[in-house]
Simulated scan of single mutants.
Amino acid sequence: MLYKDLKIVTKSLGFLTIEDFAKYIGVTPKEILKWEQKEEVPYTISLIIHLLKGEKPLPNNSTLDNLVEECLPLATLLEEASSFPHKLEEMFLLQKELNDSTNGKNWELGINKFDKEINWLRCIHMEVAELIDSAPWKHWKNINAEPDMNNVHVELVDIWHFLMSYILQETNVPKAVSLVNTHCIYEANEEVDVKAMIQESEKLSYISLAIQTNNMPSFSGIERFIDQFFRCCKISGLSFTWLQKLYIGKNCLNKFRQDNGYKEGTYIKQWNGKEDNVVMINILKQTESVSFKDLYQKLDDAYKSL
């Protein structure tokens, strides 16, 4: 819907001005100014207009108000989902670039440039163990501790690195995007059931071990992996949007580590008392949208100040 159409349709719905309509749906004049400048109206607002059409009286219809309120989360999710294929392609391309740089060309054959075996399934299995250790699962130690959800999310992103690498080893970028795309549309839980989170995370290990021991075909294993991974994201409260942002951050940090002696053992992981992961997340939280290049520069500036 174009902005000029919005002006016409709001009056047909009984609103005297666009400002009255904006107040009713809870947006600011600044947001409306952006629509006018772009000569377009967001999908969510278009959906609200479709819901309002034909409903009388307006705007004092409480049933309609409730309907709009219920539809808004889904509308917002669908609007975000339109960008998911592009975001997935960006992540898969970044992962391939990182693997090419770190492991050398043709790493998909299972050997890196130092003649070292690559085992993505084992990588996933080990990262799952680290994720579980972020929760107080031990019956003999710190039984009343709270789970470190920030680290749980970081570990999920690490698993995502290795899962993408495994998918790329078995297929290509366009096919990978096609396999993953429909699984990204979910609403992350606001309340986290820690026991369920651990149980669902362990299933990722079961899948990796089943494939590795030839008890599950590789391709059907990939589909199981993808479905189970996003189930874990949902249960742990990790939205796809934050997953993507964290992935860009962790991918950038991994590249930064490699460029600064990680493989040689000279890299400093503690930055003024904070692990580099924590520094990276703090940068992401302070920035609405950050590019790979900008984040790399921020990490470089922070590392040089040590």
Rank of each mutant, 00 (worst) to 15 (best):
Q212L: 12
K175G: 01
Q212K: 14
M216Q: 10
E288W: 05
M216V: 08
L168P: 08
C184A: 12
Q244T: 07
Q212M: 13
I268A: 09
G221L: 13
M164V: 00
A176Y: 02
V177C: 04
Q212C: 00
F225V: 09
E264L: 04
I268E: 14
F256P: 02
S178N: 06
Q244C: 07
D227G: 08
G221W: 10
Y206L: 04
F240Y: 15
I207F: 08
K234Q: 13
N277Y: 05
H183L: 08
V279E: 05
N254E: 08
L253A: 10
F256S: 09
Q228C: 08
N277M: 06
N251R: 09
N251K: 15
I185E: 04
K255Q: 07
K195C: 10
K234D: 07
M197D: 04
E264F: 01
I185G: 04
F240N: 02
S205P: 00
Q258D: 11
I211M: 15
A196I: 06
K175Y: 04
E202V: 06
L168S: 10
G221F: 11
V180D: 04
F229H: 11
I198L: 09
P174C: 11
S165H: 00
T266Q: 13
I167A: 07
N181Y: 13
V279P: 01
K250R: 15
E200K: 12
K255T: 02
I268D: 13
K195G: 10
G249C: 01
W242N: 11
C232K: 12
M216Y: 04
L168A: 06
K245F: 02
I235S: 09
G249A: 11
E275K: 05
T241H: 11
Y267D: 07
I235F: 10
R224E: 15
E187M: 12
K274C: 13
N251W: 01
G249K: 01
Y267I: 03
F219V: 10
K234R: 15
I283M: 05
F230S: 08
K234V: 04
G273A: 15
M164I: 07
V278Q: 13
E191S: 05
D276C: 09
S289Y: 14
A188N: 02
Q228E: 13
G273C: 14
S201Q: 00
K285D: 07
V194K: 00
I235K: 09
V173G: 08
I226G: 05
V173R: 08
G221I: 09
I198P: 01
N254F: 05
Q258T: 15
G237F: 03
C233V: 14
G273S: 15
A176G: 01
T171I: 12
P217H: 15
N251M: 03
L209T: 08
C252S: 03
W242C: 09
N254Q: 06
I226R: 05
Y206N: 08
K285Q: 14
C252I: 03
K175R: 14
D259S: 06
K269Q: 04
Y262T: 01
E288L: 10
S208E: 14
I248W: 02
E264G: 03
A196V: 10
C233H: 07
G237I: 05
N272G: 13
E190N: 13
I167R: 12
V180R: 00
Y262P: 00
T182K: 15
S239D: 11
E275I: 00
I207R: 05
C184L: 12
P217C: 12
G265E: 04
H183I: 07
R231F: 10
F240A: 08
N172E: 05
N214A: 14
N189I: 07
E170L: 14
